[in-house]
Design a binder for these strands. Structure first.
Length: 577
RNA sequence: CGGUGAUUAGCGCAGCUUGGUAGCGCACUUGGUUUGGGUCCAAGGGGUCGCAAGUUCGAAUCUUGCAUCACCGACCA
């Protein structure tokens, strides 16, 4: 895929568009890879498409190698399938719905479990046809409430999604493992620094799940690692172990202390000159209720140490807590406690109380008094707060003991670029997707699903590979492998001839070369190819031509050397890929 | 969806406080100049000032409504 710049749409920008906040978004705009069409929707310009296609090609090769078979499903899907799986009601506005001219309901596919399950139940009827792993690389649409960071969190995006079908858990696990390996191969080949981590299964359901994260400080997810084992998990999933030290005995009596205008933990901590870890915060959330529940919404109190953060995934998985997690309104808090949010506490509270494991070992702690502007000191569990339960509710923090039992936890940021799930029978059962087994009996299939965020990978790769001049692509996904940059070609016949000859030779050698034949000043050309991040640059100039040489520059290392034109093509061939 | 802010030429911005019919840099066109790191000079083209209504002799500027976009939060395979 060779190209002359004069016949190409380079569209680089000298200035950074105001809307782009993170570096990958800025560089994708500046390098002429994408343009925004609407919030969360982007046009890919030629350079963007090139990178996208290279990522796709690697994903496709590794999927094929792992035994998956490519299909292509419609992006627009009939509502009936979603009603059948139950997600028509379960998913909210993220699922974009619309009607066709016959007033029939459709959705823009945010994922394809329903369509693939429908396909497989129609096409597959015998256990002999299993296992089966089908994938596609296709555009998805999720009507995100807050699209941001360019293609990192777009509403329309490109994804590889695969779905496997089995008759036994054992068989599913085998494919799951094969996908795990394939994903490691994909991200390794892409040249990214990544980590597979244990993950929460979220709304999609299922038992076992791993996410693949590209490590980057701009990542939206917090990933925790053990410093002494290979344990790694999304913070949503990482268990905070119960403290091993027992709770000290109470030494103080309960006393009221005036805390006017001190609502937050930080304010109370400063006012009373007490560490945040000795204060307990009380969060009121909606309790789970039966569908036919009437009357006021019952609440549940969640208690955490002042210096700890609520883990919402853990909270909403706790029995009796409404899912999705819903915080009580100010009015609801007032009705139950008689105070506003900054001054509430568990003492004498008329609702169910769940205490985080770490908060549960505090003695003589401070909490709100359920009276505005008043806190209590010297509060103790069992003596002052009875009728409570203990659960793991908080996010782990750096230095916590690892749940694997070895070492302590380190926290890093990650960008989720892959996610694999053991789904089980959830969709197959809801949609009655089964086959005849060896005994001739109808049996529901068990499923796995495996996603790779293709367009997100492009942004993640830039987050991990850039410098002050622009993008420093990993070799495997650079839009071009080599940039041929002649100096003042229009003034020098021999430069032009050399450049044209090299262009032909590199093309013949199968190298992805961009020939910059624009009538531009050298500085403009250099700046563009550095912005674009082409890994290998060949500069042809008068002063080296006398020795039949050209200058080579490596984009990532900055290394420059003079090379004889004679051996150049072979030399480059051994360097690229 | 809540909070905050923005919207003036393709991009980045000034002008608005104090109303008088729009400007700068980059980009683009033409001519010259320069030529191994975003040249310099000159001349040009390009704007319903987000939309709608109101106030006014007169609105980019003041008022109201709406839309879009962004950020923070919530949300999230």
């Amino acid at each position: 895929m060779c190209m002359r710049s004069s016949q190409y749409l380079l569209s680089t920008l000298r200035e950074t568009p105001a809307e782009a906040e993170i570096i990958s978004h800025q560089l994708m705009m500046r390098a002429g890879m994408i343009r925004r069409e609407a919030s969360g929707m982007y046009t890919y310009l030629p350079t963007g498409v090139r990178v996208l296609r290279k990522v796709e090609a690697i994903v496709r090769e590794e999927m094929n190698k792992a035994g998956a078979i490519e299909v292509l499903m419609p992006m627009v899907q009939p509502a009936e399938l979603w009603q059948e799986s139950g997600r028509w009601e379960k998913m909210d506005a993220e699922l974009l719905r619309f009607k066709d001219r016959h007033q029939r309901d459709f959705v823009l596919g945010p994922t394809h479990e329903e369509v693939i399950t429908d396909l497989v139940r129609k096409e597959i009827s015998s256990y002999k046809q299993l296992p089966l792993n089908l994938y596609q690389i296709q555009t998805k649409f999720r009507d995100e409430r807050r699209p941001r960071f360019g293609v990192m969190r777009a509403r329309e995006f490109l994804m590889k999604d695969a779905y496997s079908f089995h008759l036994s858990q054992e068989c599913l696990e085998k494919t799951y493992q094969a996908m795990y390996t394939a994903y490691c191969n994909i991200f390794t080949r892409l040249g990214l620094e990544f980590r597979p981590v244990q993950a929460d299964t979220g709304a999609i359901g299922g038992a076992v799940s791993h996410e693949f994260h590209v490590l980057a400080s701009s990542g939206e997810d917090a990933i925790v690692f053990s410093d002494a084992s290979d344990y790694a998990a999304n913070i949503e999933k990482a268990e905070a172990l119960a403290p091993t030290t027992p709770r000290p005995a109470a030494t103080q009596a309960v006393a009221e202390v005036a805390t006017p205008n001190a609502g937050s933990i930080a304010e109370v901590s400063a006012l009373l000159n007490v560490a945040a870890s000795q204060i307990v915060k009380t969060l009121l959330v909606h309790a789970a209720v039966a569908d036919d529940h009437t009357g006021p919404q019952p609440l549940v109190a969640l208690l955490l140490r002042g210096d700890h953060e609520l883990n919402e995934v853990k909270a909403e998985k706790t029995a009796g807590v409404k899912s999705p997690l819903t915080f009580a309104s100010d009015a609801e808090i007032k009705a139950v406690t008689g105070a506003s949010a900054g001054s509430i506490g568990p003492v004498g509270l008329a609702c169910r109380v769940i205490v985080d494991r770490s908060a549960a070992v505090l003695a003589d702690f401070i909490c709100g008094a359920n009276k505005d502007g008043v806190h209590l000191t010297g509060v103790n569990f069992d003596r002052d707060v009875t009728n409570y339960e203990v659960a793991d509710l908080r996010n782990v923090v750096e230095g916590d003991p690892s749940p694997c039992g070895k070492g302590s936890l380190v926290i890093k940021r990650g960008i989720e670029v892959g996610h694999i799930f053991q789904l089980g029978e959830r969709y197959a059962a809801a949609m009655k997707a089964g086959v005849l087994n060896e005994e001739g009996k109808h049996q529901i299939m068990t499923m796995g699903c495996y996603g790779v965020g293709v367009s997100r990978i492009v942004a993640a790769a830039i987050e991990q590979n850039h410098d002050e001049f622009g993008i420093t692509w990993p070799e495997a996904i650079a839009p071009f492998q080599v940039a041929l940059v002649p100096m003042n070609m229009h003034k020098s016949v021999r430069i032009q001839e050399t450049a044209e000859q090299l262009y032909r030779d590199l093309q013949a050698a199968g190298i992805d070369v961009m020939f910059d034949d624009r009538k531009e000043r050298p500085g403009v050309m250099f700046a563009d190819w550095e912005l674009l991040g082409v890994p290998h640059q060949i500069v042809i100039g008068e002063r080296n031509l006398d020795n039949q040489q050209v200058e080579y520059k490596n984009r990532r290392s900055g290394e420059k050397e003079l090379l004889d034109i004679a051996g150049l093509v072979d030399w480059l061939k051994s360097r690229v890929k």
